[in-house]
Design a binder for these strands. Structure first.
Lengths: 122, 122
DNA sequence: CAGCATCCCATTAGATACTG
DNA sequence: CAGTATCTAATGGGATGCTG
């Protein structure tokens, strides 16, 4: 994340936007939350969804969101180890915001994407 | 910003969330956009709203959002110089997402704020 | 007023190796 | 499987000084 742990309290109007962003910010948090919206997942399951994330990054992102109370971490005492990550009640309240972002992204991403297939498709 | 210019196109499902976040991410973009939602503003006007931002940061954030097509920059040829920043049409389409974030922030910010006045108010 | 240029330090995040 | 530890490259972002 960038502004992480910086949601300083020199809050001006508009600050709550920042506060919200500071939580879902962090290179992978948005997508992670979005995937967890669908269902709880195990560590490597999430990792596979993200493909290019390093385990170090995934760990820190998950830990931070856990600390922020957005997700829960459930360890199953078994071999091989199993750890489930799921949205907390608080995390679920982000759903509208997450969907608003996704909706926007779906509508407008093409504006920023080089649209790879149209390049050599001519 | 963090993931800035990284909305790489190894897009998995959920990626559009990232794409959207990558644009409003960046320490100040969220708040700036939010303020511009109200009305166009001049450079120092925005700066005053943000209070702790450096002009270097403000400049880069504005430039990036301009490059992303989210805001417009209008220079008035006069002395002293005047430059207005305003949301573009595209920028305006972010309004629902921005409001969703603000709504969430307003409802839940107290969870993350030390609530300064309650500290010595025992 | 609204910037740009430079210097510089703090933080971030990738790669790699090891573990219960 | 689900991590932790360490080391390092890259980036972010503050401070300061100058300009049309």
């Amino acid at each position: 994340m960038t502004r992480r742990r910086t949601h300083g309290f020199d809050c001006a109007p508009g600050c709550s936007v920042e506060a919200a962003l500071s939580l879902i910010d962090g290179k992978w948090k948005g997508v992670i939350l979005f995937h967890l919206l669908e269902r709880p997942m195990r560590f490597n399951e999430i990792r596979r969804k993200l493909a290019t994330v390093t385990q170090r990054m995934l760990t820190t992102q998950l830990r931070e969101m856990e600390a922020d109370g957005l997700i829960t971490r459930t360890v199953f005492a078994q071999v091989p180890p199993r750890v489930d990550y799921a949205l907390s009640d608080l995390g679920r309240t982000l759903e509208p915001a997450l969907h608003a972002l996704k909706t926007w992204g779906d509508s407008n991403m093409h504006l920023f994407s080089p649209a790879p297939d149209t390049l050599n498709a001519s």
